[in-house]
Design a protein around this nucleic acid. Structure first.
Length: 282
DNA sequence: AGTGAGGCCTGAAAGC
DNA sequence: TGCTTTCAGGCCTCAC
């Protein structure tokens, strides 16, 4: 099993794969081949986790938390290019950018990250709440506390475009650059709208669109993981299911915008690409 | 306080 | 062909 591409749905899918393969396993040893990630991998991480049992694996925003039975938890983040490889037996040779390897009684977990924007660290389980990494996290998209009123309060005096604000992990966590565009398309809301201009109804529509878009992607990830493997052994993933992301100039699935005004548009907001249908999204 | 720009890294793809 | 530039799914810090 091998997966990458880290927004909420991908992290969720990877977390599920980890649960299926190594939850309950015992950590035999940990190899740190390179500690230079977004944060340095703690020197004592191997000694703190060796011979502990993996109790629970869950997702927190775009992080994966692995609780051990000795009072410590691993914290993983995949950054832009992080990948997790799960192998059933010992690997003969490691690949470039394989930074951290967990040897467990149920197989090998390899953390690989070319750009090293991700992290693999450890903290006391009962200290996670206070860990600086989670200090400013907003609500999970599926948290029932995420309501139109919640967003109304946060957007009240925000002049910033809604697309940029969707990437702000301190309001809603888990949405990245792909699903920000996809959710706004699903909601038929222009990425250029000022956040404060969204009505209560717009926000209800947007929340539903976010959940629908993420749910669809998680389901696709799950089925992909189970059913589809590219010839080189890596996982194929969901590439043709995006409606607008990376589809500049093409016709969006729900209208004839390509004939009316040149199809899906690509613009830059906050230094990052946004894709939308100028005809459907208002 | 809120906002925008820049930086961290490597590699793939596009441009010349 | 090979060299240079641009761009990439995230997040943090710093200057205004």
């Amino acid at each position: 099993v091998e997966l990458d591409m880290p927004e909420l749905p991908e992290v969720e899918t990877i977390k599920e794969a980890l649960k299926r393969s190594v939850e309950g396993a015992k950590v035999l040893s940990v190899e740190v081949r390179s500690p230079h990630l977004r944060e340095q991998v703690p020197t004592n991480l191997p000694q703190l986790s060796s011979s502990a049992q993996i109790l629970r694996i869950y997702r927190l925003a775009k992080y994966i938390i692995i609780d051990l039975n000795n009072g410590y938890s691993f914290i993983l983040h995949l950054g832009m290019s992080g990948r997790i490889k799960i192998l059933e037996s010992e690997s003969v040779s490691y690949e470039k950018h394989d930074h951290v390897i967990l040897h467990t009684t149920k197989g090998l977990v390899i953390y690989n990250d070319a750009r090293r924007f991700g992290l693999f660290t450890i903290d006391k389980t009962d200290h996670l709440q206070k860990n600086h990494l989670f200090e400013h996290l907003g609500l999970d998209p599926f948290d029932e506390q995420l309501t139109a009123t919640y967003l109304e309060n946060h957007f009240k005096q925000k002049q910033t475009a809604i697309k940029i604000v969707l990437l702000d992990q301190s309001i809603i966590n888990g949405i990245g650059n792909i699903y920000a565009s996809e959710a706004l398309y699903e909601a038929r809301i222009s990425p250029l709208r000022k956040s404060s201009s969204l009505t209560h109804t717009d926000l209800e529509v947007l929340i539903n669109a976010i959940r629908k878009t993420l749910t669809k992607a998680i389901k696709a990830g799950g089925s992909t993981l189970k059913d589809y493997r590219k010839p080189d052994g890596s996982m194929g993933y969901f590439q043709n299911q995006h409606c607008v992301y990376n589809k500049e100039g093409q016709r969006c699935p729900d209208c004839t915008c390509s004939e009316i005004d040149g199809g899906i548009k690509r613009i830059t907001q906050g230094g990052r690409s946004t894709f939308y249908c100028g005809y459907l999204q208002k």
